[in-house]
Amino acid sequence: MSPCAAGHILHGDEGRVYLCIWEERYQICPEDLGMLFFVGDHVPLMKKGPALQVYQISGLVYLSPSGQAVIIAIDKQRYMVPRARLLAVALGEEASCDFFEMPEENSDIEIISPHKEGATS
């Protein structure tokens, strides 16, 4: 996990939200923002494809189980931003906000193994 921001979210034209993650640029469409915030659906994270006007799905965006954060999933990497901050950017109340990497969900078996250094079974 990086101690610095992994990227930032920008208010875009026509109701879009742009995400800049490590030199890559993604977007969430306005109709998908409604489904995310008000229905709680998983929505696609879009990225420009090889052709200029073609977008392809590059990840998913969804609410955390508590509903207080938005999770951005690209392959195995996860990022998180507070729901209120993303909503403020989407509505144009804030120009941008930062988000951060989430720690990996898989724990290292060596750390939790009960059979290390004298532990009895």
Rank of each mutant, 00 (worst) to 15 (best):
2 S>M: 06
2 S>E: 11
3 P>N: 12
5 A>G: 02
7 G>S: 04
7 G>T: 03
8 H>M: 07
10 L>R: 13
11 H>T: 01
13 D>S: 12
13 D>I: 08
14 E>L: 11
16 R>N: 14
16 R>W: 09
17 V>M: 08
17 V>G: 07
18 Y>K: 08
20 C>V: 13
21 I>C: 06
23 E>P: 00
25 R>C: 09
26 Y>R: 02
28 I>W: 01
30 P>Q: 10
30 P>G: 12
30 P>I: 12
30 P>V: 09
30 P>R: 09
30 P>S: 14
31 E>I: 04
32 D>E: 15
32 D>F: 12
32 D>T: 08
34 G>R: 12
37 F>C: 05
39 V>R: 13
39 V>L: 15
39 V>N: 08
40 G>N: 08
41 D>Q: 15
42 H>G: 01
44 P>N: 12
44 P>G: 07
51 A>Q: 15
52 L>S: 12
52 L>T: 09
53 Q>E: 14
54 V>K: 15
54 V>Y: 06
55 Y>W: 13
56 Q>F: 07
58 S>H: 03
61 V>Y: 02
61 V>Q: 02
61 V>M: 02
62 Y>T: 02
63 L>Y: 03
63 L>G: 07
63 L>I: 03
64 S>Y: 07
64 S>T: 13
70 V>K: 03
70 V>Y: 05
73 A>E: 03
73 A>L: 03
74 I>C: 00
74 I>L: 04
75 D>P: 00
77 Q>T: 12
78 R>M: 06
79 Y>S: 01
82 P>F: 05
85 R>Y: 11
86 L>S: 04
87 L>I: 01
87 L>V: 04
87 L>T: 02
87 L>N: 10
88 A>Q: 14
90 A>F: 11
91 L>M: 14
95 A>P: 02
96 S>M: 14
97 C>H: 04
97 C>F: 03
97 C>S: 07
100 F>A: 09
101 E>A: 10
103 P>M: 10
103 P>Y: 00
105 E>M: 14
105 E>C: 07
106 N>P: 00
107 S>P: 00
107 S>R: 13
107 S>Q: 13
110 E>V: 01
111 I>N: 04
111 I>E: 13
114 P>K: 04
115 H>A: 13
116 K>A: 07
116 K>M: 10
117 E>D: 11
117 E>T: 09
121 S>G: 12
